[in-house]
């Protein structure tokens, strides 16, 4: 299990990296933390002829607040940094809660925020969480940059809007409105495994304690982050009673997701788990929203 040969570039600026990508196009692959890419290279399941390593680009690693009270994360910020960052804990509690659930400490020390998003594994927590949080991503190419909302960025299995000569350089996560609560629930065989199913829920109550918005995004439940639109619709304007929550969970599990079968779980079991987790996540999120005045 040794990787095939490749041409290697380790630029120190984004511009330099972009010029390598522009030159090599589809032959090149961006190396971020490498915690998903290198295993696939070791298995020789992927054999990029060119690797553009972003690890020496210092300007891509940061966490800071933005003007509107949200959070900005540089693409090369390591999971471990996000996990222990006090600003993340304060401004993005869902993200803070999510980080320790990603793989193991040895993976989190190398894996990066932008790498995980760009890889677009439908089982990855950050993919669904960034959609649940209404995040936006800044993509840069040699011809300029563009902002893409998270819910448009992921377009399929391991597929995003990124062009081969573009890099996701930054993620912006808006602040949570008042009377909001969140939850991340997963079922995994072992805690550090990819979840059989997971769900990130963000809910907001209005002044009358009715559901103003309830966003649930499932992981491992389809070809990408699966947004539970119908379930959200069913909750809108409702009091978050157990009955309403149960009904929404049922809708989410039966109509909003499209899970597949594999050796770990059948689609049927995944729908069942999605139902259970949606209920639990909504309960927790609404409880937290009620406390979060």
């Amino acid at each position: 299990m040794k990787p095939a040969p490749f041409e290697y570039y380790a630029p120190t600026t984004i511009d330099e990296a972009l010029s390598h990508l522009a030159e090599h196009g589809y032959d090149a692959k961006v190396l971020a933390g490498g915690q998903s890419l290198i295993p696939m290279m070791n298995f020789r399941l992927v054999q990029p002829s060119v690797l553009v390593d972003l690890n020496n680009i210092a300007e891509l690693s940061y966490i800071h607040p933005d003007e509107s009270g949200g959070l900005r994360l540089g693409a090369m910020t390591r999971h471990h940094q996000v996990e222990v960052d006090p600003l993340v804990a304060e401004l993005a509690p869902l993200l803070h809660e999510t980080m320790p659930k990603i793989a193991t400490s040895q993976i989190r020390s190398r894996g990066t925020f932008g790498g995980s998003l760009s890889h677009a594994d439908p089982s990855a927590e950050l993919v669904s969480v960034s959609v649940a949080l209404d995040g936006r991503f800044r993509l840069r190419g040699q011809n300029g940059e563009r902002w893409v909302p998270a819910n448009e960025f992921f377009i399929g299995l391991f597929t995003t809007l990124l062009e081969p000569d573009e890099i996701l350089v930054e993620a912006a996560l808006p602040s949570m409105p008042v009377r909001s609560g969140c939850s991340l629930m997963e079922v995994a065989r072992r805690p550090h495994d990819f979840a059989l199913v997971g769900v990130a829920a963000v809910v907001t109550l209005d002044e009358n304690k009715l559901c103003q918005q309830a966003r649930m995004v499932f992981l491992s439940a389809g070809d990408g982050p699966m947004v539970a639109h119908k379930a959200a619709e069913s909750l809108k304007g409702q009091a978050p009673t157990l009955e309403a929550i149960r009904a929404a969970a049922e809708i989410a599990a039966s109509e909003d997701i499209d899970p597949g079968s594999d050796i770990h779980a059948t689609a049927e079991f995944r729908r069942h788990l999605a139902n259970v987790l949606a209920r639990r996540a909504l309960e927790q999120a609404f409880e937290r929203a009620a406390d979060n005045k």
Binding site: P39, F43, R189, R190, P191, H192, D193, F194, I263, H264
Partner: peptide, 16 residues
């Protein structure tokens, strides 16, 4: 064989 890796063949870790 559909699970020829330690990611898919699950041997117990300390948490189990």
């Amino acid at each position: 064989l559909l699970n020829a890796s330690f990611a898919d063949y699950l041997i117990p870790s300390a948490t189990e």
